[in-house]
Structures are given as structure tokens and as C-alpha cells.
Design a protein around this nucleic acid. Structure first.
Lengths: 221, 221
DNA sequence: GCAAAAGTGTTCCAGATACACCCATGT
DNA sequence: ACATGGGTGTATCTGGAACACTTTTGC
């Protein structure tokens, strides 16, 4: 129990985790076990501890609720409408995170909540104002693709240029010219050709690349 | 007195108010009357009330502490390092605001705190992490000038193109080519030529323009 | 040999940049 | 007449957009 002279809002973080699956932009959601919005899908997130950095809180909730860690994380916006939570005044600092397109180790939380990936284009009914948060996150992400190398945060250790192109197409929701795309991305000088190739299906094998500065997002143009 | 099950951080807003004076980018600061950081300069701002929207809180503090109202306001970033305030855990949602280059009605707060405009290039020692906040705000503003019409938020009802050019030069800290500047800005089709001119000094009078959609910021390029 | 994805260059266009002189006024 | 800031046009460069065929593999 804690007592204050004046009322304090509660502070949470919510995290929009994106990935690309089957050429689609997807978001990780958890199913709420309790009221309000019991059995509705919601963003992972929760209350910030009193001595915890905001970003650390976001990473902790992400780990606890979904088992996801080691992701690229960036602050999105702070949502503070007085009535956005029916219980008490809750201000949420929203983050968005990107996880590689392969090898996602998601895991239900210890309290056995359901979790799952949903296509951005086909989201279910969402709790609170989480729809607004996801919409803003997608807009921010799409904008950042065009003036930074943030898309590389979706890539696993080794990847082909076609996979990277799929990231752009999925986030922007429109096709990209293959030749212009390769010319532009290679000109940024942010990837190394490993010399390796990957055989996969009945067609020519793809060259594999690695990111030169993993975890670093640079501005381009 | 209010009691909670778990500790809650306090929430404040801080506002970086920019204007242009004498061709320089300036920031409005208030002198703190109390500890911590007594007699240090700081951003205007303060605690968010429990039923108040974040943006409304920022506007209220701005009015109370500086007399400024009717400004363009945009959320900047949320700063939440656990030790950024020595008294208790305080998370601040930072905003930035733009006020027209003429006719600033600033006014000391009722508690007679000193307030004043400071050149961004020559800031005094600042309280808390306010230096970081101002630095981020200037970066955001400079970036936005290049892909939006946000600079028009600095303009009073009627203004000359030279005044607008001064805004760009002051924020970016570098000179701009007059002919290219006019060509580009007029192509955006965001201003109306009033037909009026302003006589001011011993030289040719300047044409005066008005903003087509005041308060609205559009993306360009 | 056929299906499927990987890989590769050139032409064209639009928007940005560089650049210098005349105009209208006050003193 | 001169000092001061206001106002104007063209040539060039650069980066983005459009566009189609060959290569390598598995079956």
C-alpha cells in the first residue's frame, strides 16, 4: 500500500511486435484472461515498476507474456486519454518491436494465456485503444522503411534479397520493382555478400547476405 | 490523500516552446522558484491532473506559467529514466510548440517566476534532463521542416517570404538559396498572396502572404 | 524441357541545385 | 545617387521510375 498527496495515474507499456510471415505483416497479440476486455485480444504489455526504465519495462513484459527477447525496440507514442481504461486512469507508453522473419520463439505466458500472430490486414476486435496504437505503429514503420535501414531488423543472420524485398512489400502493402530495389539497397552499403547460397525449391539458389551493423538503424536518402 | 496497492510514478508534461527572434531559434524557459534545481532554468510544465488529457495538461501549464496560448503543439517523446527527478519517480511526456515570430505575449506566472527566451545555440544550465529534451525537439523540428509545412506554424497572420526563409535558416542553422526556396514553397501551394505589401526600411516593400490552412501541417516531397 | 524464383542495365523524367542581376523604396 | 532588402529564370545534375530477358536449379 502506498499513499500520495495527489492522485497519480498508472503507467503501462504496450508493445506492438511485428514480423513478416507468408509475405504478410503480422502482429503478436495475447488473449486477456481477466476483465476488463476478458477474452479479447490485446497488445502485450503491463504496468511499469517503480524503479524500472520504461524501455526495460517493455522488454520485461514482452519476455514474460510472449517469451520474445532480443528484439529491436523503439518508442512509438504515449496514449493518455483519461477514459482509455475503465478501471483507473492509465497512461500507456507504446513501443514497437521488430522480430526476424524466421525462427520466432513465441511461448504462452506462465498464466497460460493464449497468444498468436495476426495479419495486420485482418485484426480481431481489440481491447482498449489498441487498434489505434497498432495503426499508428504501422504508419510509423512504413514511413521509416523509406528513409532508414530499419527493415534490416526483420532479417535473420543470413537472408536473401528477395526475403528483404518481401519485408518492404508486406509493410507498404504494394509491390516493389526488383531491379530498382536491389540497386538502391546495395548502394546503401549496409549488407555483406557471404558468398554462400541457399537452395530452396526448384529454381536458381539465392545469394545470402548479412547485415553489416546489426541492431543499428541508419538514415538514408 | 490517495492510497494505491502498488506505487505509481508521477506524470508531468514539459513543453519546448520555440520561436524565431532576430534570425535565431529561441526557446522559452522559466526559472525554478523551488528545490530541486532552485534558481535553475527549466522547461515550462508540471503535473498532469487525474482527469486531464495529456495534451490539455501541456496547454494548461503553458498558459499558467507563461501566458502563451493558441500554439501549435505536438508530442515529442516520453522520458522515463527512474532517477531523472530526485524527489520521486517522475515520467514526463514532452511536447514541443511553435509560436509566431512576432507578437509573443509572454507573461510571468502568478507566482512571479522569471521567464525568458534563450537562443537554442546559447542555452543556460538546465534543470533535470531538460537539455536532452530540447536537443531532441530541435532535431525533430529540423527534420520536419524538410518533409512538411510545419514551418508555417511560426508565421503570424501575414508574412513575407523572407521571414519564412529566416525560419528555415534559423532552425537548420544554415543559409538557404532564395530563388530555390521561393520556387519550392510556392509550388507546395500552401500560401495565398494577399496582394498587400509591407513597407519596412529603405528598400522595396515585401509582398505579404497568408497560410491557406492555418493549424494544419501537410507532408510534402 | 519445363516450371519457378534469382539475377542483371539502360533509358527517361522530375525535382533539386547552382548561380547573378534588376527593382522599389528611404535617406 | 546610393544603400538595402525584395524579387526573378535558366542550365545542369542526380536520384527515382519504368521496363524484359537470361540464369540456375529441381522435377
Amino acid at each position: 500500500m502506498v499513499t500520495y498527496q495527489h492522485p497519480h495515474p498508472a503507467i503501462t507499456t504496450d508493445i506492438v511486435i511485428f514480423t513478416i510471415q507468408d509475405g504478410q505483416l503480422k502482429v503478436l497479440l495475447v488473449c486477456r484472461a481477466n476483465d476488463p476486455f476478458k477474452d479479447h485480444w490485446a497488445l502485450p504489455g503491463g504496468f511499469v515498476e517503480i524503479d524500472e526504465h520504461l524501455e526495460a519495462g517493455a522488454l520485461r513484459e514482452l519476455k514474460e507474456e510472449t517469451g520474445v527477447s532480443g528484439v529491436y525496440l523503439e518508442q512509438l507514442y504515449t496514449f493518455g486519454k483519461p477514459d482509455r481504461d475503465p478501471r483507473e486512469r492509465v497512461i500507456t507508453v507504446a513501443y514497437y518491436a521488430l522480430t526476424p522473419i524466421n525462427g520466432l520463439n513465441i511461448r504462452a505466458a506462465s498464466d497460460a494465456r493464449q497468444i498468436g500472430w495476426f495479419a495486420y490486414a485482418k485484426l480481431p476486435q481489440l481491447a482498449f485503444d489498441h487498434k489505434d496504437i497498432i495503426t499508428l505503429a504501422q504508419q510509423r514503420l512504413a514511413a521509416k522503411l523509406s528513409y532508414s535501414t530499419i527493415a534490416l531488423q526483420f532479417m535473420p543472420g543470413k537472408f536473401s534479397l528477395s526475403e528483404l524485398q518481401q519485408v518492404y512489400e508486406a509493410v507498404q502493402g504494394s509491390p516493389v520493382d526488383k531491379r530498382n530495389f536491389r540497386k538502391r539497397l546495395l548502394a546503401y552499403d549496409c549488407m555483406t555478400d557471404t558468398g554462400e547460397v541457399r537452395r530452396h525449391g526448384k529454381h536458381r539458389p539465392a545469394r545470402l547476405y548479412t547485415v553489416k551493423s546489426p541492431g543499428k538503424v541508419e538514415f538514408v536518402k
